[in-house]
Amino acid sequence: MSLTDGDMATIWLTLRLATTVTILLLIFATPVAWWLATTKSWFKGPMSAIVALPLVLPPTVLGFYLLLAMGPNGAIGQFTQALGLGTLPFTFWGLVVASMVYSLPFVVQPIQNSIEAIGNRPLEAAATLGAGPIDRFFTVVLPLAKPGFMTATILGFAHTVGEFGIVLMIGGSIPGETRVVSVQIYDHVEALEYAQAHALSGVMIVFSFVVLLMLYTFQRKRKAVGMTYGR
């Protein structure tokens, strides 16, 4: 029971995909989370629902619409073609875009919750000390919302590693380009290569356990620190 070169390639591809998606999501989801945490607009409800949609929709539904949108006649497809990038389905970057949609709530929600927990006071205190809005974001929001950002990073990464349905819809199974671990396991099983499927599945179980262990250990530590507030 050992991993073949093909298996290793899928592992590296999966890690590359998850890393790319996590970094991009942190950049993209932070303003969304900030807006959701601070807005009083009527649009907050609809926006929250849109962000949360991937939590409830079957990945095939998301994948189907993304496939249409990124296809030659879809809005995203037209746009990428106009930029001279061709179409995204069945490419690595197509997978990145699809994964970002799929993992969005897992990154937005922890950040949003931790920003909401900060409240106004630290920001007001910073403003009275001469800190402008951007300064306040980096010197007050980021340090205070750090647990939220940590949780968002871990969840976003792990959730991207664990996706299957949407990859199959958007990416197919092109070695080195879109064939991630979950798809490779599926292919092994289809080909009745159970030993290979076992090996890769085992890796996934260990990985998932370690990630969740990290998450909960980290959250418990934060809570203990939070308890010693004031005296």
Binding site: R121, P122, E124, T128, L129, A131, D135, P143
Partner: peptide, 20 residues
């Protein structure tokens, strides 16, 4: 003039220090 451009100091009821 926004708060951060006013030359003032503000002491709140609770100290409101940056805990980190």
């Amino acid at each position: 003039v926004p708060t951060h451009k006013r030359s003032l100091g503000y002491v709140f009821q609770e100290a409101s220090l940056f805990e980190y």
